[in-house]
Design a protein around this nucleic acid. Structure first.
Length: 366
DNA sequence: GAGATTTGACCGCT
DNA sequence: AGCGGTCAAATCTC
């Protein structure tokens, strides 16, 4: 392992830069939390630019560190990057736990981080699929237990899909959701959502899951309310109609990382000042791939793992910050959400931690 | 009573 | 040996 003074100095710089990123991201979050999100576009843009500037510096340092590190850096052992900053350290600790799980099972795993605005909330958005809890475990080093879920139709339709839900230690508003295996069942996701509106489907362990399901809109419900998708980029605004057809043409332009895009989703419901942003960003080792704010409830969706071959270039197998940064910098990509739906052989829509916009006219969601 | 959740015990991997 | 993942009986909710 490279442990030279140069790498150490770069690690210190990286730590400083990432700390600045964290602060700027926090400021951006505070702006978003303000009352009138629609009149603060310029503030968002300014904050995003500052964040982009700082992240650009951090990326340059990370690239240098990555270039200096051996190609075969192990993920399970200590690496020089691990001392590079608090974010990286936390992510690496999470990665260690995750890798322990990966070694156990060969099934593909995808991890999403879902943010809720209120740390007191005990449930996270329903993903539209029906899950049954089969276990809960206290995880070493984790403040919160991990819940184990599998598809409700495991026996009826031999569906092997599973997921694990664990609240983040560092941010009570964040839930780490790990999906494992694929849904081979034919459960009607949208129907599930409809049933949730009438009493809910079980999703998370909570004192009264059936009751609480009514109190929080599912991601499917959130997206179902979306009328117009306004994608705001540095070049301006683009409107997209709802539905799969739009999702198919929903492709962000290629811009230099780290702050590729900022987008907003307008809702057709007047009384819900709702906005959603989709911005693959790199201020976290787990890039956010989606966010929705509905009825004052904000949901961030991250995804930092993907099945091999899936066109999620910012989702390396290892979520070590250094690797994320390196790949993102070395090969800037146009994040193409449509690829998630086009390449079904590689990544089925129902494998996603959240449903496609407006649902699917065909396929597993029917 | 059916179906879902809880929870302690067990299994298997590292 | 320690830990994460799963099982299954007990319990809960509707």
């Amino acid at each position: 392992m490279q442990d030279g003074a140069g790498a150490g100095a770069e690690g210190g710089i990286l730590q400083t830069l990432l700390a600045a990123c964290e602060e700027q991201a926090r400021q951006l979050g505070e702006m978003i939390a303000d009352d009138d999100p629609w009149s603060r576009t310029e503030h968002y843009r300014g904050a995003a630019r500052r964040l982009q500037c700082t992240l650009g510096k951090a990326l340059a340092v990370a690239r240098a560190v990555e270039a200096a590190a051996p190609a075969s850096s192990s993920r399970g052992t200590d690496s020089p990057r691990s001392a590079g900053g608090t974010v990286a350290a936390v992510e690496q600790a999470q990665e260690r736990q995750s890798m322990c799980n990966k070694r156990r099972k060969g099934l593909p795993r995808r991890t999403a981080k879902i943010r809720v605005p209120d740390a007191s909330l005990e449930v996270i958005p329903d993903d539209g699929l029906s899950w049954r809890k089969y276990g809960q475990k206290d995880i070493l080093g984790a403040k919160f237990p991990r819940g184990y879920y599998r598809c409700t139709y495991r026996k009826a339709q031999a569906c092997a899909a599973k997921k694990q839900v664990q609240r983040s230690d560092t941010d009570l508003c964040v839930f780490d959701v790990t999906y494992q295996g694929e849904h081979t069942c034919h459960q009607k996701q949208r129907a599930t959502v409809a049933s949730a509106a009438h009493g809910g489907s079980p999703w998370l362990a909570s004192p009264s899951p059936r009751q609480k399901q009514q109190d929080h809109p599912s991601m499917q419900q959130l997206l179902g309310r979306m009328g117009v998708l306004k994608v705001e980029t540095a070049a301006g605004l683009h409107d997209h109609d709802r539905g799969l057809a739009s999702a198919s043409s929903f492709s962000f332009p290629s811009v230099p990382p780290p702050f590729h895009h900022a987008s907003e989703v307008a809702m057709d419901n007047h009384h819900t000042a709702a906005a959603a942003a989709f911005s693959p960003s790199y201020f976290s080792a787990a890039p956010r791939c989606g966010q929705a704010v509905v009825d004052g409830t904000c949901y961030d969706v991250y995804d930092y793992e993907a099945p091999a071959g899936a066109r999620i270039h910012w989702a390396p197998e290892s979520s070590e910050l250094g690797e994320v940064v390196s790949r993102a910098t070395a090969a800037p990509v146009a994040f193409d959400y449509s690829s998630l739906f086009h390449h079904q052989a590689e990544l089925e829509p129902h494998q996603l931690p959240f449903p496609p916009f407006g649902g699917l006219p065909h396929g597993p969601y029917q």
